[in-house]
Computed example of a mutant assay.
Amino acid sequence: MAGQIDARLAELGIEIPEAAAPVANYVGYVISGKTIYVSGQVTIKDGAFHYQGKLGDSISIDEGVAAARLCGINVISQLKAACGGDLDKIKQVIRLGGYVNSTPDFGDQPKVINGASDLMVEVFGDKGRHCRAAVSAGSLPFGVAVEVEATAELE
Results as ranks from 00 to 15, higher is better:
1 M>W: 00
3 G>L: 06
3 G>C: 06
6 D>W: 10
8 R>H: 05
16 I>R: 05
18 E>H: 06
18 E>P: 12
20 A>Y: 09
21 A>K: 15
21 A>G: 08
23 V>K: 15
30 V>P: 06
32 S>G: 13
32 S>Q: 15
32 S>L: 14
32 S>M: 11
34 K>Q: 12
35 T>P: 04
36 I>L: 04
37 Y>M: 11
37 Y>V: 11
38 V>N: 00
38 V>E: 02
38 V>Q: 01
39 S>D: 10
41 Q>K: 13
41 Q>Y: 02
43 T>D: 04
45 K>W: 09
45 K>G: 05
45 K>N: 09
47 G>C: 10
48 A>I: 12
49 F>P: 03
54 K>Y: 10
57 D>H: 14
59 I>H: 02
62 D>C: 01
63 E>P: 09
63 E>A: 14
64 G>R: 02
65 V>D: 06
70 L>T: 00
71 C>L: 09
76 I>S: 03
78 Q>Y: 00
79 L>N: 01
82 A>H: 05
83 C>Y: 02
84 G>E: 04
84 G>H: 07
86 D>T: 05
87 L>E: 01
90 I>N: 04
90 I>M: 00
90 I>K: 01
92 Q>M: 00
93 V>G: 03
93 V>Y: 02
94 I>G: 00
97 G>F: 10
100 V>Y: 01
101 N>V: 07
101 N>W: 00
104 P>Q: 09
104 P>F: 10
105 D>C: 01
106 F>T: 08
111 K>I: 10
112 V>D: 04
113 I>L: 13
115 G>V: 06
115 G>I: 01
116 A>D: 01
117 S>A: 13
121 V>T: 14
123 V>Q: 04
126 D>P: 07
128 G>I: 04
130 H>N: 13
132 R>I: 02
133 A>Y: 14
134 A>H: 07
138 G>S: 09
139 S>Q: 13
143 G>Q: 07
143 G>C: 11
148 V>T: 09
152 A>G: 05
